[in-house]
Amino acid sequence: MAIVADHLGLSWTELARELNFSVDEINQIRVENPNSLISQSFMLLKKWVTRDGKNATTDALTSVLTKINRIDIVTLLE
């Protein structure tokens, strides 16, 4: 997760939308982690794993990252 969080940057909100997080949930992550995109990205991934449990797999994440054109991160995960 740390590799993904380190590289997402501003794309974390796009990833959040693709992972079916609501606008309110995205804003809450922003408010709770106001000074760091990496912290926002990491919190998103943590919430995703908590919410989706065993369905929050590397394959699922890779699929969504591909959908938002972040092949650079997919390559890092391989």
Rank of each mutant, 00 (worst) to 15 (best):
M43S: 14
K46N: 12
D52E: 13
I71W: 13
V4A: 08
N33D: 06
W48A: 00
S41G: 12
V23F: 10
N55T: 10
K54M: 11
L15T: 01
I71Q: 15
L65A: 00
S11F: 04
R17G: 10
V64K: 07
I68P: 07
D72W: 01
N33L: 03
I71S: 12
N55S: 13
S39A: 14
G53I: 01
I26C: 05
L10E: 14
L37S: 10
A2V: 10
G9V: 05
D6W: 05
R70T: 01
L19F: 06
N20S: 11
S11L: 00
K46Y: 04
T75K: 15
A5H: 03
Q40S: 07
L15K: 02
L19W: 05
A2Q: 14
N27Q: 14
I3K: 08
H7Y: 06
G9L: 00
R17M: 12
L65M: 04
W12Y: 02
F42D: 15
T62M: 15
N27K: 11
I3M: 11
T50P: 00
Q28W: 03
S39V: 09
L61Q: 03
S11T: 07
L37E: 14
F21V: 02
E14P: 05
L44M: 12
D6S: 08
F21G: 04
V31Y: 14
E78Y: 10
G53K: 10
L45S: 01
E18N: 15
N33Q: 15
R17N: 15
L10T: 12
M43A: 14
V23E: 12
Q28D: 14
E14G: 06
H7T: 09
I71V: 14
A2K: 11
M1E: 07
V49K: 11
D24I: 06
L77K: 04
H7I: 04
I38E: 15
D24Q: 15
V74I: 06
S11I: 06
L8K: 04
G9S: 05
Q40E: 01
K46M: 09
K46G: 07
M43N: 10
T50W: 12
T57F: 06
D59C: 13
H7C: 04
A56I: 07
E25R: 00
L15R: 01
T57G: 06
A56Y: 07
I3Y: 05
Q28Y: 07
S36Y: 02
D72L: 03
Q40D: 03
N33Y: 09
V23I: 12
V31I: 13
L19C: 02
N55C: 10
D24N: 09
H7W: 02
D59V: 10
S36T: 07
A5I: 03
I68M: 08
L77H: 03
N27P: 01
T62A: 14
D52G: 04
E25A: 06
V31T: 14
I71C: 09
R70Q: 01
V64C: 14
E25V: 07
T50G: 14
N27V: 06
A60Q: 13
I71H: 09
M1T: 02
A5L: 01
I26N: 10
V23N: 15
L45P: 01
N69I: 04
L44V: 09
E32H: 06
D24V: 07
T58K: 14
V49G: 09
T66H: 13
L65C: 05
I3R: 07
E32C: 08
S41T: 08
D59L: 10
N69M: 04
T62Y: 10
L15M: 12
M1I: 07
G9R: 05
I26D: 01
R51V: 02
Q40W: 03
P34K: 05
G53E: 11
Q40N: 00
T58L: 13
F42K: 15
P34W: 01
V31E: 10
V74Y: 05
P34M: 04
L8M: 05
A2H: 13
L44A: 06
S39L: 09
L65D: 15
E25D: 14
R17H: 09
T75S: 13
S63H: 12
R51I: 04
W12R: 02
L37H: 11
F21E: 00
I26K: 00
N35T: 13
A16E: 01
D6R: 10
F42G: 15
V74Q: 05
R30A: 13
A16V: 05
A60R: 11
D72A: 03
N20F: 09
V74R: 02
E18C: 05
T75G: 13
T13L: 11
L10C: 13
N27C: 08
D52N: 04
S11E: 07
D52T: 04
N69Y: 04
E78V: 09
D6Y: 07
A2C: 11
G53F: 03
L19T: 01
N33M: 10
F42T: 15
T66S: 09
L76M: 15
R70M: 03
R51P: 03
E32R: 10
T50Q: 13
D72H: 03
L19I: 07
N27A: 11
A60H: 15
E32D: 14
D24R: 08
D24K: 09
V31C: 14
E18T: 06
E32M: 11
D59Q: 14
T66I: 11
W48Q: 02
I71A: 11
N55H: 12
F21Y: 07
I3W: 08
A2R: 15
E32A: 12
Q40A: 12
A2M: 09
V23T: 13
T57L: 02
F42S: 15
S39M: 12
I73Y: 00
T13I: 13
T75M: 13
D72T: 01
N20D: 15
E14S: 11
R51A: 03
V49L: 12
I29Q: 05
L45W: 01
V49Y: 14
D59R: 12
S63C: 11
L19G: 00
V74F: 00
E78F: 10
L77E: 01
I38K: 14
S22Y: 04
R17L: 12
E78A: 11
L10Q: 14
V64D: 02
K46T: 12
V74G: 04
V64H: 15
K67R: 11
N55D: 15
G9N: 12
L77R: 01
K67M: 14
L19V: 04
F42H: 15
S36F: 03
R17E: 12
E78G: 15
S36A: 04
T75Q: 14
T66P: 05
S39N: 15
V74K: 08
I71F: 15
A2E: 15
A56E: 05
S63E: 11
I3Q: 07
A56D: 04
K47H: 11
N35Q: 11
D52W: 01
L65T: 05
L15D: 00
D52C: 05
Q28V: 06
K67T: 08
L19H: 04
V64R: 07
I71Y: 15
M1L: 10
H7Q: 12
V74T: 10
T50F: 08
D6N: 12
T58F: 11
P34V: 00
D59F: 05
L8W: 05
D6A: 08
S63D: 14
G53L: 02
L45E: 02
M1H: 05
R17S: 11
L37Q: 13
T75Y: 11
S63V: 12
N35S: 09
A2G: 15
N55A: 14
Q40V: 01
S39I: 05
Q40P: 04
K54V: 14
K46R: 13
R70W: 02
Q28I: 06
K67P: 04
D24W: 06
S39Q: 15
T57M: 06
A56C: 08
I71G: 15
T66W: 09
T13H: 09
S36E: 09
S39H: 11
E18F: 06
A56W: 06
T13G: 06
N35D: 12
L65Y: 03
F42L: 12
L45M: 09
L10W: 11
L44F: 11
T62F: 09
F42Y: 14
N27I: 13
E25P: 00
N35I: 07
W12A: 02
L44E: 01
E18I: 03
W48S: 01
T13A: 10
